[in-house]
């Protein structure tokens, strides 16, 4: 039976608790260092299948000012590079509004990329 521990800082709130997650054969056995249940949940998830919300920019046709976007939900950490590649290669036409989907199922994650800014022109 392989026991390992992973340590990292909780990012659920500005508290930034130092979490230690104990895993046995890849299964979470315990989380310590957290001050709230959200921290325990985050610690377990981060140790087994870390996820990130990706925020970036897409181009605008005919204007060098980009539009800011984000993944509508977290994507697996190992897909972040592929997600960024696809976002970065995307161009949109104005107007756009907050929440408009600009990429569907980005990098095969099942998550959409949405605008975080409304721009009429």
């Amino acid at each position: 039976m392989a026991t390992e521990t992973k340590s990292f800082t909780c990012v659920q709130c500005p508290m930034g608790c130092p979490l230690t997650v104990t895993l046995e054969d890849g299964v979470v056995k315990g989380v310590t260092g957290n001050t709230c249940p959200r921290g325990a949940k985050y610690g377990a998830a981060e140790a087994t299948h870390p996820e990130r919300v990706v925020t970036s920019l897409v181009g605008v046709v005919g204007d060098h000012h980009p539009v800011s976007v984000k993944t509508a939900g977290p994507v697996p950490k190992e897909t972040v590079d592929a997600v960024l590649d696809q976002i970065s290669a995307t161009e949109v036409r104005l107007p756009v509004h907050i929440g408009d989907v600009v990429v569907r199922d980005v990098a095969g994650t099942g998550v959409d990329v949405v605008c975080t800014k409304s721009r009429e022109r």
Binding site: V53, T55, S56, L57, S68, K70, T116, K117
Partner: peptide, 19 residues
Amino acid sequence: CIHNGFGLHRFGEELTGPE
């Protein structure tokens, strides 16, 4: 500030700066 992390206290959700 196009990154997220705004609004957890005020709106209970994680938003980007423009949102």
